[in-house]
C-alpha cells in the first residue's frame, strides 16, 4: 500500500494550446470557478475533468472528459464552463466531450481529495481507477479515519457514490467510488 503522502497526483493538470499567456491565464481562472453541481465544494479542474484547452479559429475549445457517461450533471457542467469562460472575455466557447484520456478517479487532485473528505465523502482509493477490481470493504471513514467499516451498498444517491457504515463512530457515510 502506498501512503497518501508519497503519491502526488497531477493527472488533473491539462495542456493549453494556441493561447497567449494572458488569455490562457484568464481561461484557467475561469475554469477554476466551475464546480461540480452534485459536490459543490470541488471544482471540475480538481476533479480532473478538463482534458485540455485549445483554439480553433477565434473559438476557445474546452475538451472535457466526463466522469460517468450517464451523469445527469454533465449538461449543467458544460453550460457552466461556457458561461464562465465567456465571462472571462471569450466571445466564442465550445465544450467538446472526449474519452481520451478516459476519466478515472485517479485524476482527482490531492486538493480535490481533501475537499471531498471535508465534505464527508470518503475519497476514492488511489491507483484502483478504471478496470482494477477494488475492495470496497474497509474504506476509511471520512469522519474518524477508522477502517473498521462495512460496505452497505455498491450504489448510492448518485452514480459516483457507494454507501458504507463505520463500526467505530457508528455513522453511515458515502464514498466516491474508484472508477
Amino acid at each position: 500500500m502506498v501512503s497518501e503522502k508519497t503519491t502526488q497526483s497531477d493527472l488533473h493538470r491539462y495542456p493549453v494550446m494556441g493561447l497567449l499567456p494572458e488569455r490562457a491565464a484568464a481561461v484557467a481562472i475561469a475554469l477554476d470557478t466551475v464546480t461540480d453541481p452534485e459536490i459543490p465544494v470541488i471544482t471540475i479542474v480538481e476533479m480532473g475533468m478538463i482534458a485540455g484547452v485549445r483554439v480553433e479559429g477565434d473559438a476557445v475549445i474546452v475538451d472535457m472528459t466526463p466522469t460517468f457517461a450517464g451523469c445527469p450533471a454533465l449538461d449543467v457542467i458544460k453550460a457552466d464552463i461556457v458561461g464562465a469562460v465567456e465571462n472571462a472575455g471569450e466571445p466564442t466557447v465550445a465544450v467538446n466531450v472526449v474519452y481520451d484520456p478516459p476519466w478515472t478517479s485517479d485524476r482527482i487532485s490531492d486538493e480535490g481529495r481533501r475537499k471531498l473528505k471535508a465534505f464527508g465523502l470518503a475519497p476514492p482509493g488511489r491507483r484502483c481507477g478504471n478496470h482494477e477490481v477494488v475492495d470496497l470493504e474497509q474504506t476509511p471513514c471520512p469522519l474518524c479515519d477508522s477502517t473498521e467499516t462495512d460496505l452497505e451498498s455498491i450504489f448510492g444517491p448518485t452514480l459516483c457514490r457507494s454507501i458504507h457504515y463505520c463500526r467505530n463512530c457508528l455513522q453511515s457515510f458515502e464514498h466516491f467510488k474508484a472508477v
Partner: peptide, 13 residues
Amino acid sequence: AQLARKLRGEEKY
C-alpha cells in the same frame, strides 16, 4: 476503442 475503455470502468460495479 476509447469509448469502450471508458464504459468498461463503469460496468465493473
